[in-house]
């Protein structure tokens, strides 16, 4: 009887530890944040995104990730008939995929946006533009960050 009890508990332990390992393996998959591709697909509402037209300017090697100047320009005449309606920037490894989403009017005259962003680590960044005809264009760059944002107190 004693023997039976012992084996039973051992089996229980075995089962529960397998469960624990399984949980540890599966958990990160479920808690993983949205991927860059998923964020882009959401922005383009599942539409096709073509590489080109968009130019994403950023330093390749970044000393300080707290304020990184970026410029995104889109090749467009910005007329009523043919203009950029939105420009957005997404990242791969920051805590949140979105960085900035802008909307433009043809009155802007030029489809260009400059700002300063935070970068948590070396990663890929994508600038995406939506045209008034519903097409999407993008430019992806890869940057190396030596001092990340988010670590300073």
């Amino acid at each position: 009887m004693k023997m039976y009890e012992y084996r039973f508990r051992r089996r229980q332990l075995l089962v529960s530890s397998v469960g624990l390992i399984g949980y540890a393996i599966v958990r990160p998959v479920f808690s993983a944040p949205v991927t860059l591709d998923a964020a882009l697909a959401e922005f383009s509402r599942g539409g096709k995104v073509t590489t080109g037209k968009v130019k994403f300017e950023i330093a390749e090697l970044i000393d300080n990730g707290n304020a990184v100047p970026i410029t995104v320009s889109v090749d467009s005449p910005m007329t009523e008939a043919n203009h950029v309606v939105a420009i957005a920037v997404f990242n791969e490894k920051n805590p949140q995929r979105e960085m900035i989403k802008t909307k433009l009017s043809p009155l802007a005259g030029r489809a260009q946006l400059s700002t300063r962003i935070r970068l948590a680590t070396s990663q890929k960044l994508t600038a995406i533009a939506e045209m008034n005809d519903g097409s999407f264009f993008s430019h992806t760059v890869e940057v190396v960050v030596t001092l990340a944002a988010c670590i300073e107190e």
Binding site: N94, K101, T102, K103, L104, L107, G109, Q112, T115
Partner: peptide
Amino acid sequence: DLIFSAELFPAISANPYIAFHLR
């Protein structure tokens, strides 16, 4: 007329700087 609008996220640096154009 709305020329330009931006939705900002925590990834934008402190003291947000934005540059855009107008005809």
